[in-house]
């Protein structure tokens, strides 16, 4: 395993209202088997040992499923590898001597809290605006009383695979949350369980998305290209259709 040295240009910002800027660091003696976040751990331990504040970044499961990690690496959300979260990106995809630029998600509805950490609570509020089936605990019929064809079920699953990381927003020039919102709307619109609230769900969630200040869809597909779960932009088409259908039905 080859050793590597890197120069890192990392966005540092004390708090939401403080000015931020890039700071350069060198890290030496890295190992190609490290994950990207382990590379940052090495930097942070070095900073702590010299009495400096480590770089704050969100991370938790480090298995690519919790959706917590969120960095723009060399201009791309979650870095250069397709279908991969930052935590699953490994250093073998970089070269010795590289300069790597690391920034937070940049979108007005996701204010920076510190360094690379942003506030993604708008996503929670969008789900609260209708991203559920209203079924109280205890009132469910038998699981097999609701047959669902495998194709429909698989299609709903593809949408449900969204991890809510926000890379779609970070990738979009308009900071649109369309892919995130469309994924949940599509999952529930495809399934029989989602039918009773189908119209009010799409109207409510789209309104909340707009109220949070996310921009319009650019139709460029940047979101799909950067989505670590490779969720298709076709779901945005489906959301638009659902939205118009709901308005026509009144």
């Amino acid at each position: 395993m080859a050793e590597m040295n890197l120069t890192l240009k990392i966005w540092r910002q004390d708090g939401p209202n403080d000015p931020g800027g890039f700071k350069s660091y060198t890290v030496n003696g890295l190992n190609t088997h490290m994950s990207f976040l382990e590379m940052l751990d090495v930097l942070n331990e070095k900073l702590v040992n010299t009495g400096d504040e480590p770089v704050a970044f969100d991370h938790d499961c480090r298995e690519g499923i919790c959706g917590m990690c969120s960095m723009v690496i060399n201009g791309r959300p979650h870095g250069p590898l397709e279908g991969t979260t930052t935590c699953q990106l490994h250093m073998r995809h970089f070269n010795d001597g590289d300069t790597v630029t690391i920034e937070p998600w940049r979108a007005k509805p996701f204010p920076i809290l510190k360094d690379l950490i942003v506030d993604r609570t708008p996503f929670d509020r969008i789900i609260q605006a209708g991203g559920f089936v209203s079924v109280n605990t205890g009132s469910a019929p038998d699981g097999n009383a609701i047959p669902i064809g495998k194709e429909i079920s698989d299609e709903a699953f593809d949408a449900a695979a969204c991890i809510g990381c926000g890379a779609c927003v970070a990738a979009c020039k308009n900071a649109s949350a369309s892919l995130f919102v469309a994924a949940k709307i599509s999952q529930l619109a495809l399934l029989p369980q989602g039918q009773p609230e189908r119209e009010e769900r799409v109207v409510g969630m789209v309104k909340q998305m707009d109220d949070e200040g996310f921009g319009h869809c650019t139709n460029t597909g940047a979101c799909e290209a950067e989505c670590p779960k490779e969720i298709s932009v076709d779901y945005i088409r489906k959301m638009n259709w659902e939205f118009h259908r709901a308005n026509v039905k009144g």
Partner: peptide
Amino acid sequence: IDQCVAQGVPFAR
């Protein structure tokens, strides 16, 4: 299982 299906959890079918 019943509860989760009713919520729209996409179990394998």
